[in-house]
Design a protein around this nucleic acid. Sequence first.
DNA 1: TCTGGGGTCCTAGGACCC
DNA 2: TCTGGGGTCCTAGGACCC
Length: 424
Amino acid sequence: MTQSVFALVDVNNFYVSCERVFDWRLWGKPVVVLSNNDGCVVARSPEIKALGIKMGTPWHKLKDAAREHGIVALSSNYTLYGDMSRRVMTILADFAPRQEVYSIDECFLDVSGISGLAGYGQQIRARIQQWVGLPVCVGYGQTKTLAKLANHCSKKGLAGADGVCDLTALSQADSDTLLDQIDVGEVWGVGRRLVPQLGMMNICTVGDLRRANVATIRSKFGVVLERTVRELRAEDCLPLEAMAPDKDQIMASRSFGRPVTELCELREAVITYVTRAGEKLRIQGSVASSVLVSLRTNPFNDDPQYARQIVMPLPHPTDDMLALADAAERGIRQIYRSGFRYHKAGVMLMGLMPAEHRQTTLFEDSEEIARRGRLNEALDTINGKFGRRTVELFGAGIAKPWSMRAENRTPAYTTDWNALPTVR
DNA sequence: TCTGGGGTCCTAGGACCC
DNA sequence: TCTGGGGTCCTAGGACCC
C-alpha cells in the first residue's frame, strides 16, 4: 500500500481577502473584519497583524489604534464569504479525487500518488488567484495533522516555502530540525489550555510533542491528544471525510444590538432564530425531537446576571416551522424573568434524526402533517428565491429593533443582482 | 455604549437494569 | 460483617476547531 498524502489548502486572511477582491481601495490598508454585532476582530489583513493586533480583540478597545493607523473595519458579510467559499471549493475539487471541506476557507485533498507536489501546489495557487482572485497556501503531509502543520509552514515561509510546503519531501533530520522550531501551540488539536500543561512536562515544540511517550500522553490527556501525537509521527488516525455527516444539533443564536428587557422582544428574537434553525434542519432533511431555548445577560458588565436554558420536548419529532416556533415561544416564556438587561438569546434543535426515520404516532392527523409539509416547502422556496425573511412568521417581528449591529457591511456582490459591482 | 456564532468529541458520574 | 459485575443511557463539563 502506498503512503497517503494529504493537502491542506486554505485562503489567506479569507474574509479580508474576499472584501479586497471587490474594493481595490482596501489594498495596502490595515483592514479588519468584525464578528457578528461588530463585536470583535475575526479577520486581519497583514498590515493589521504587523501592528500586533490579535485575533478576537474587541473592536471597542481598538478605536484609538484605529484612528491612529487609519484602520478600516468592516462588518462581516457571510453571504459574500459563503459564495466565494463555494467557488473556491468547486475549483479545488478538480485537483484531487477526494475532498473534505473542513471549514469556510479550507479543505483537505487526497493527493496520494500524485507526483511533483510542489509544482502542483503552485498550479492550485495560480488557478484560485486567476479564477476567483483569492490567495491560498498549500501544505502537504502524510496525515491531516501534518498537512495542517505544513500549511502553517507555507504561510510563515518556513523551510523555504513559497506558499507551498511539502513535509513529505523532508528527510527525518530536516523534519526534526523544522519541528523543533515550531511552538507546540501551532499543532492542530493543541489549544490554549493544553500549552501550559504540556510546558510543565517540557513539551514546548512540535518536535517535543512528536517525541513524547504515547502512553503518558494518553493517560494524562486522553485519546484525542494521543491521536495527535500519532498523526505527527505519520500514523494516519484521522480519515478524510469526503461526505459531511449530518449535524447532531443545529443552533441559531445572536447577541442583541442593544440590551433587551421586554418579553415581547425576546419572543420575536427566538422565533426569528428558530425559523432560521428550522430552515437548516429542512435543508439537512432531518426532524428534531426537542428545542432548547437559552437566554442570558451580558457577562462582561456589572449588571445583575441571569442565564438560563430550557429543553422543550416536542410531541413528536418534526421539522414544521409552526411546531418549532410554538415550542420556542413556550420555552422563552418559561425562562424569562423581568428586571434584567438581556444580551443574547438562542435556540438549539436537538435529538435530530433523518426525516424518513420519523415514526408516526397513533393520534396524529396525516392530512394535517402533509399540509404543513407543503406550507414549509412553499416558505423555503419563496425565501430561497427572493431572499431570507421575504415571508416570515408575524411573531418574528417586523422592525426587529433588537437585531444586531452591522454598521459597515459591504454589498452581497456575487449573489444579488442589485449589488453587482460596477466599474467606476 | 461597545467582548461572535456554530459546531465536534471525550470523559466522568449517576440512574437504572439484569 | 458480609454487600457483583457488566451494560446502557443521559447529562454536565471541558477541551478543541474555525
